[in-house]
Amino acid sequence: MSIRPFQILLVEDGPGDFELVKTALENSGLKFSLDLVQEGTDVVAFLNRHEPYIDAKRPDLILIDLQFRNGVGDQTLKEIKSSHSLKIIPVIIISDSTRVEDVMISYNLGANCYIIRPVDQAEFLKLIEITMKFWLTMVKLPTRAR
């Protein structure tokens, strides 16, 4: 039985939810390690362990912060889900958009699930806690199947 900490990767555009996701994971009582990379080319370099990320750990779960209102789209999701070696890693989209088209695009690109960020911080924290608990304790993750 694997006891190594859960490896979580948060992809976001600018300062955002890192502290909140970290708090949610701490509250879960599970052992974890949380990495942060900026949206864009960095992510694929990180996942493929290219410079400057040659020591990067492969994540068990990826959270992508989508901020449609800032024009930040789904490039990272597209790249992960079209890569043979990366596509098995579950990707959770955290989005500020409730538009049906945005939701559809993410699922069509292979997002494992789509969550809308509530405006209220306490509500958001609770949502992330439930999400982490579900994915880390109920779901079988491909990277921890052994």
Binding site: S95, S97, T98, R99, V100, V103, M104, Y107, C113, Y114, I115, I116, L127, I130, T131, F134, M138
Partner: peptide, 18 residues
């Protein structure tokens, strides 16, 4: 049920927010 029906935004249950 809890996770998929109360936390997640499903593609088929759309109410446009705009």
């Amino acid at each position: 049920e809890d996770f998929w029906f109360t936390v997640v935004k499903l593609p088929t249950k759309g109410q446009d927010g705009t």
